[in-house]
Amino acid sequence: MSDSFHPETLAVHAGRRIDPATGAVTPNLTLSTTFERAADGSLPHGLNYTRLDNPNRHALEEALAALEGGREALAFASGQAATAALLQALSPGDTVLLPDDIYHGTRVLAETVLGRWGLRVVTVDFTDSAAVAVALEHTAARLLWIETPSNPRLKITDVRTVARLARAAGALVVADNTWATPILQRVLELGAHVALHSTTKYIGGHSDALGGAVIFSADAPPDFVARVRENQRLGGGVPAPFDCWLLLRSLATLPLRVRAQSATAAQLAVWLATEPAVARVYYPGLPVHSGHAINAAQMSSGGAMISFEVHGGFAAASTVAARVKLITRATSLGGVESLIEHRKLAEGPHSPTPDNLLRLSVGLEHVDDLRADLAQAITGLAM
């Protein structure tokens, strides 16, 4: 499908075709694990075995590539599977630069699991472009991993600047665009070679389908793309056909959902910043956020995620999470329902996340109802 269409149009039509046999508008679900060869041994439909390819996965990958503005996409069984496939496309002894604030699972996978395999990890404050330049100069990094807004403190990386530095140093640039989605931020246009998504989150949007994806820019090195594709097909971390079907279904409403959730989040962030029980609000849509100007230059809004710290430490954060009635206490984010999580409790005692930080994924409920629930939850906290 032409990339000249607007995101709303691509979200509805990319990867979808009318079934020529029945005229069905909704894509068929192909559950078969294997596909018949012709008498001469050829594959007349281009399909062999569903770990290697599947019509539903192909449709999802086509849609994601179009929406992110990439050359091609690869779908995985989870965001972690996608992350592992990218990092394992490197070689033992290669160095990866990670930001100092990043999804806990990415850090642990890179440092612990792949550290045993030989991956070297260097952590840098990516909000400091000068520090990134120094790290690139002294480490000969093979890959630089951007996450903006970051999880859970919503730090903002200047993608254009950092990507330019990395490319000049000969490093690959991966940008985890899960929190922003291609609706709010186009990381490939900003200079990344690869956009990563946990499609479980906003792309799925209904907390009912697990998945991940990587989308490659037009100038992503072909040998690296080939290794990632090999990891997908031989490693076997591929999504089930039904999960692909669900994710493609959800793409149609992605622009509407994300923009509505972001609008509500912006109102809640402003209100939280005025509450005496709240010590700090992390939201790049607030003018007081240190990355506000950069975020405004590369992202169309502040997004739908808010983190905030409450006075009273670990115990107070646990109390707030326990008191909510409308908002659900649960891991994950990006669904139509609002979720809250005490991140230090989830990540463990060795996590660098502040003890008193709560992460809020804003859903599609009315802003007044969410505000009222949060207000009653923080009322009476020790100042």
Rank of each mutant, 00 (worst) to 15 (best):
N56V: 04
A252N: 00
E36I: 05
F242I: 13
A273R: 11
M383T: 12
G211R: 05
S250T: 06
A220H: 05
D158T: 01
T112S: 13
H366I: 08
R229W: 11
T331Y: 09
R280S: 04
L364M: 14
A81S: 15
L119S: 07
S207R: 15
R164M: 10
G23V: 05
D19F: 08
G70A: 06
M299K: 07
N356W: 01
Q261T: 07
A75D: 03
I146D: 00
E8S: 13
H6G: 06
A180W: 02
F308K: 00
R160G: 00
R142T: 12
R257C: 04
N54T: 09
E111Y: 01
L60S: 08
P239F: 03
A269V: 06
Q261V: 03
R167F: 02
N356E: 14
P349C: 08
A226G: 08
S150G: 02
L52I: 14
A213F: 05
L165N: 01
M305N: 10
W245K: 11
V278L: 05
L357T: 12
A273P: 05
L254E: 03
L87G: 01
G211E: 10
P349H: 14
H366A: 15
V270R: 14
W271L: 05
A304I: 07
N48A: 15
G334K: 03
I215N: 04
S332F: 12
G205C: 09
A168L: 09
R142W: 03
L256E: 13
G15V: 05
H311L: 09
K155Y: 08
Y49S: 11
T274E: 15
D355T: 02
A316V: 07
G70H: 04
A133N: 08
A277T: 04
V96T: 07
D128P: 06
R17A: 14
A81L: 07
T181K: 12
A377C: 06
T139D: 04
I156V: 15
R229E: 15
F76S: 07
D219C: 10
K344M: 00
Y282M: 11
A346C: 06
L360S: 08
D101S: 12
F242V: 13
V122M: 02
A39T: 11
A375P: 02
V113C: 00
A110M: 06
